[in-house]
Design a protein around this nucleic acid. Sequence first.
DNA 1: GATTTACTTGACTTATTTTGTCAAGTTAAT
DNA 2: ATTAACTTGACAAAATAAGTCAAGTAAATC
Lengths: 103, 103
Amino acid sequence: MKSFHEILRESREKNGLLLREVSSKLQIDQALISKFESGNRKPTRAQVIQLARYYDTDKEELLVQWMSEKVVYELRNEEFADEILKVAEQKMRYLSKSKNEKA
Amino acid sequence: MKSFHEILRESREKNGLLLREVSSKLQIDQALISKFESGNRKPTRAQVIQLARYYDTDKEELLVQWMSEKVVYELRNEEFADEILKVAEQKMRYLSKSKNEKA
DNA sequence: GATTTACTTGACTTATTTTGTCAAGTTAAT
DNA sequence: ATTAACTTGACAAAATAAGTCAAGTAAATC
């Protein structure tokens, strides 16, 4: 499975772009973008969207990758991470159900 | 399904404890505990553990409830929350697999 | 082998978010 | 009307995340 930062780097390379080009176009420090691509920093949501646009890649997919890694990161030291995710899913289902019932 | 803050309040009540008693025993501001129980604030991990101990309730279960709500909260505005969780699970499985392979 | 180019790294500052505190407020019982 | 239990809101403090800049590699080119 490809990680978010790998996808980011590959997308840039597919477009034959240099870091400094992306940097100047999107007004994001080149060092930051480099860190995004090495996985040392997480971009903000707005940056993910900017990048997806500029690389002409699927925005939703990139956002899903980005967000799911944030979740995984949060659970990195959790002994019961798998159970936590299961319970989170249940809670989500419950929420969307009561949301629908209201409507 | 019971939410974390409901469990918290019920646990305290089961023990017949007043907010100020918990507050003084655990050295947590009473207002904070009140907010925990109404769901307006999330305790820290250390506080969850303290509370579980003092209420003599299952620490793991409380932690799972607490943590899963943090995850749900993070996804509250995500359109593809369900997919994000699925991908997060995949990534977790992948991680624990490569972790095992190393060992 | 010195320069240039593309990218990386680390330390630091700034911004944002989370957590804690206190005083005032509500509700219900006495 | 007082007291007791709890709640609320505004603010301060602490923790975390994001951004910046200068210096550092590594490979290609002159």
